[in-house]
């Protein structure tokens, strides 16, 4: 009882967090190397060496920060990633929390991410961090709506807000084919929720690291870890709702999910390295004028498909 309801789910989430975040770091470095941005040392060891360095570095102090919020924000972001991962079903039976409303909970994770990222920038009491925080709020409001419409689209054929039901509804046809607009739109949401690559408006180079510009040492490690973990959590959700989750022949279910998560991660990390950071104004215009109407189209498409 305790094993099945407490230990196993916790272990699954922690393992997925740790291994996943490490895999993100290695994969990103391999991609960077393939694109001509080579760094000395082995890609497998580098994330560990970087982590060890951050652990030995002292945690920075700014003048009169909001201490509790500043130290808590990376941990809250990590917790949001953990909540996301807890919802991902690894097989029909292996799922940390099989909520009847898992789609809704994931939506709230995305919304709370905006709050936490703003908190991280605001609480440092430093100008560049604050600008990063302001910018992220503009972005956050824009992508959450897109995410909602896309997720309602996948809940329609399943007639349920439960991720396991959403997977079961894809037994005949994966949602990526059934609703072709859904996955591309959702991938943009993924870049937004982890403010990665083209949507990295919060921690960008023109702000010397933005919300993380004043952070050093272990809190910075926690922040970087949380960002990687959020990518993993997102890729788990994307693989679940669009790529048929654990479904697939020959291999065991969890392995299928891992492979699909890798595919999503690869797409996100490649986009992160190949595309420039959007200017905030372009970004907001793109979201409201192009992508949001496209998500309406996606929803209408899903509705018609469900009726027929």
């Amino acid at each position: 009882m305790i094993w099945e309801q407490l230990v196993l789910p916790t272990l699954t989430v922690l393992l997925a967090l740790g291994i996943g975040a490490y895999a993100v770091a290695v994969l990103d470095r391999l991609i960077a190397g393939a694109l001509g941005l080579s760094r000395a040392g082995s890609a497998w060891l580098a994330p560990l060496a970087r982590g060890a360095w951050l652990l030995t570095q002292s945690a920075n102090v700014t003048e009169a920060p909001d201490w509790q919020a500043w130290r808590l924000a990376p941990l809250l972001y990590l917790m949001l990633a953990a909540v996301g991962l807890a919802l991902v079903p690894w097989s029909a039976s292996l799922v940390a929390t099989d909520l009847a409303t898992s789609v809704v909970l994931w939506g709230s994770v995305e919304a709370l991410a905006t709050v936490v990222i703003f908190l991280h920038g605001w609480s440092a009491n430093a100008p560049l961090a604050l600008i990063g925080a302001y910018r992220y709020v503009a972005l956050g409001l824009s992508y959450i709506l897109i995410s909602m419409f896309v997720l309602i689209g996948v809940a329609l054929p399943a007639e349920s807000l439960q991720f396991t039901q959403v997977v079961a509804s894809q037994a005949e046809l994966w949602n990526v084919i059934r609703q072709p607009l859904g996955l591309p739109l959702f991938l943009i949401v993924g870049l937004g929720v982890s403010f990665w690559g083209p949507l990295n408006l919060a921690d960008s180079t023109d702000l010397a690291g933005g919300t993380a510009s004043e952070v050093s040492g272990p809190p910075r490690l926690a922040w970087n870890l949380a960002r990687a973990a959020m990518l993993v959590a997102f890729s788990g959700v994307a693989a679940t709702v669009f790529l048929g989750g654990w479904l697939g022949p020959w291999l065991p279910g969890p392995l299928w999910l891992v492979l699909k998560m890798f595919a999503v991660l690869l797409a996100l990390l490649l986009a992160g390295r190949l595309l420039p950071r959007l200017s905030p104004e372009r970004c907001v215009t793109l979201m409201w004028v192009v992508l949001l109407p496209l998500s309406f189209v996606d929803l209408v498409w899903a509705g018609l498909e469900a009726l027929l």
């Binding site: 760094r39 040392g41 580098a46 560990l48 060496a49 060890a52 360095w53 652990l55 030995t56």
Partner: peptide, 13 residues
Amino acid sequence: WLRRLAARAPVPV
């Protein structure tokens, strides 16, 4: 061992 590992990271300058 932590510091030995940290010494192997590319130098952040």
